[in-house]
């Protein structure tokens, strides 16, 4: 029993890392432009397919092609923001929801056209064997995914804390007018922040690609999970999202051990409802916006 609980904690933590990175993107985007990106799940899928494409066409492992995935996804996010989000940036939030939800449908169907609905997978030779620690076994792609997630989050942290662009992003998220008066182009910062958020989704997708099957609609499950995690961590609080992601990963894994797989999702949404009822600003949220 102790072994299976430890095993499920480890599995949960490793998956939680991937959730954390994806949700960090949702929270960053919300923090800067007060828009919930309901296309995030679809963008995770796009990340998967970018990695899959490079694997299938060029034989490059998703880990090696990760920098290209980051670049492609950043540019995609930047473009999406400029073309579709920016025009509705001051629109009522239900309209923004419709737009990002619509984007999600467009992206999914684009993937269907390009890659068909057939399930795909990436199998990396040598990566299918688990690492054994006594009775515990650790799935290699999940471990690598976790390591790279930590690196990616660290990268986002350094970008936000140590660079002028990062400071401008933080400044814009708390004090739009003050930032504008310093000569910061808020529209450009919005697009960059959206690009970074989408790149986070893309990295999560690329790292999930060797772990699970790939299909154009697989992101839907992640969409709601990312949203739940971002709210749990306090929308706009990206480090809250990271912590919440790890928690949700562990809860999901332990719940599926204790109650069975079909219950684990329910536990997550139960937590979501409780958070909304009792602490709608999230674990670390301070103020309501």
């Amino acid at each position: 029993m102790a072994v299976s609980i430890t095993q499920s904690l480890i599995d949960g933590l490793l998956m939680g890392g991937v959730y954390a990175l994806a949700a960090l993107g949702v929270s960053l985007i919300f923090g800067v432009m007060k828009i919930t990106n309901f296309a995030h799940g679809a963008l995770i899928t796009v990340g998967m397919f970018v990695a899959y494409f490079m694997f299938a066409q060029l034989g490059v492992s998703p880990y090696v092609s990760l920098p290209i995935t980051i670049l492609v996804m950043f540019l995609l996010g930047y473009g999406i923001q400029k073309l579709t989000i920016n025009p509705i940036i001051t629109a009522p939030s239900h309209n923004q929801l419709l737009l990002t939800q619509g984007l999600s449908i467009v992206l999914e169907n684009l993937l269907l056209v390009l890659f068909t609905a057939n399930y795909k997978s990436i199998s990396l030779p040598g990566f299918d064997k688990a690492i054994k620690f006594g009775a515990l076994s650790i799935n290699k792609p999940k471990l690598i995914a976790f390591g790279l997630v930590v690196l990616a989050s660290l990268g986002v942290y350094l970008l936000l804390q140590k660079t002028d662009i990062g400071h401008a992003i933080s400044a814009t998220s708390v004090q739009r007018e003050g930032a504008t008066l310093m000569g910061i182009k808020v529209e450009r910062i919005n697009a960059i922040a959206f690009g970074i958020g989408v790149a986070c989704a893309g990295v999560a997708g690329a790292l999930l690609a060797p772990i699970q099957y790939i299909s154009p609609t697989v992101g839907e499950g992640f969409q709601l999970k990312c949203f739940v995690i971002a709210v749990f961590g306090g929308l706009g609080n990206i480090w809250g999202a990271v912590v919440a992601g790890l928690i949700i990963g562990v809860v999901e894994s332990v719940a599926s051990l204790a109650l069975g797989g079909s219950w684990s999702e329910m536990v997550i949404y139960l937590i979501f409802i409780l958070v909304l009822l009792f602490k709608p600003t999230g674990l670390f949220g301070k103020k309501t916006r």
């Binding site: 401008a168 933080s170 400044a171 708390v174 004090q175 310093m182």
Partner: peptide, 24 residues
């Protein structure tokens, strides 16, 4: 350049970071 009413600082950032953003 304007020093706006109500200051409009970036409260979570340090004083120096605020100053540095003035020279963005």
């Amino acid at each position: 350049v304007q020093v706006p009413e109500g200051r409009k600082l970036f409260p979570q950032m340090t004083v120096q970071e605020n100053l540095e953003l003035g020279s963005f």
